[in-house]
C-alpha cells in the first residue's frame, strides 16, 4: 500500500523534473522530437533502476562498513559512469536492436543529474532496498512522462508563430513552467490517498 503512495508521489506530485529540478539538461536537449524523447526516457528508466540498486549496495555494503561515507559522491559517480559503459557494451553484444534504439543516449546519461540525484536521495531518505527500487522506477517513469509530454508540445510549437527572441530553449522553459504549474495541482493527493487507504 505504501508503495502505491510512493509511486503516485514520485510520478505526479514530486515529479523529478518538474518539482525536484533534476535532469533538466537532457529534458530540454532531447525534447525537440518525439522519437528522441522516447529513446531518452526508456534509457533513463533502464539505467536509473540499475544504478540505484548498485549504488545502494555500494553505500550499505562497502562505504558504511569501512567508514568511508564521505566518499559517497566520488564513489557514486564512478559507479554510475562504469555502469553506463558496461550497459552499453552489454547491449551492443547481446541486444543489438535495443542498442540501436538507446545507443546514442547512454553516454549522455552519465552526466544526467537525475540518476545521481535519485541514488543520493534514496540514501538520504533512508529508504529500504525495495522502496529505493520502486522509487527509482517511479521517478524515471515520471521523467519519461514529463519528457514525452513536453516533446509533444514542442513539436506543435515548431509550426506556430513564436516571438523570435523566445524561440528554442526559452519557449521550452516557459512550457516546462506551465506544465509544472499543472503538476502543482497534484499537491496533497498523496495525503488524501494515504488516508483513503488506511480506512
Amino acid at each position: 500500500m505504501e508503495y502505491i503512495v510512493l509511486i503516485i508521489s514520485a510520478i505526479l506530485i514530486k515529479n523529478i523534473l518538474l518539482a525536484e529540478y533534476l535532469g533538466n539538461c537532457p529534458f530540454l536537449g532531447t525534447s525537440k522530437r518525439m522519437d528522441t524523447a522516447v529513446g531518452m526516457g526508456l534509457s533513463v528508466i533502464f539505467v536509473m533502476t540499475i544504478a540505484t540498486a548498485v549504488t545502494y549496495w555500494v553505500q550499505y555494503k562497502v562505504l558504511n562498513p569501512l567508514g568511508l561515507g564521505y566518499l559517497q559522491t566520488i564513489a557514486f559517480i564512478l559507479v554510475i559512469a562504469a555502469l553506463v559503459q558496461f550497459v552499453e557494451m552489454f547491449l551492443r553484444k547481446f541486444a543489438p536492436p535495443l542498442y540501436q534504439a538507446l545507443g546514442i543516449f547512454l553516454p549522455l546519461i552519465t552526466t544526467n543529474c537525475a540518476v545521481l540525484g535519485t541514488a543520493i536521495l534514496c540514501i538520504r531518505r533512508e529508504q529500504t532496498f525495495p522502496e529505493a527500487i520502486v522509487f527509482a522506477i517511479a521517478s524515471a517513469s515520471g521523467f519519461t512522462l514529463a519528457l514525452i509530454l513536453l516533446a509533444g508540445i514542442r513539436e506543435r510549437l515548431e509550426i506556430s508563430d513564436v516571438p523570435k527572441a523566445l524561440r528554442g530553449t526559452a519557449i521550452g522553459l516557459i512550457m516546462a513552467g506551465l506544465m509544472s504549474l499543472a503538476f502543482f495541482g497534484f499537491v496533497g493527493v498523496d495525503g488524501s490517498l494515504k488516508a483513503l487507504l488506511q480506512n
Binding site: 518538474l18 530553449t169 519557449i171 522553459l173 516557459i174 516546462a176 513552467g177 506551465l178 509544472s180
Partner: peptide, 11 residues
C-alpha cells in the same frame, strides 16, 4: 516554487 523557476528563467 518550481513553476516560477522555469518561467523566470525562460523569460
Amino acid at each position: 516554487e518550481a513553476p516560477g523557476a522555469f518561467l523566470s528563467l525562460g523569460l
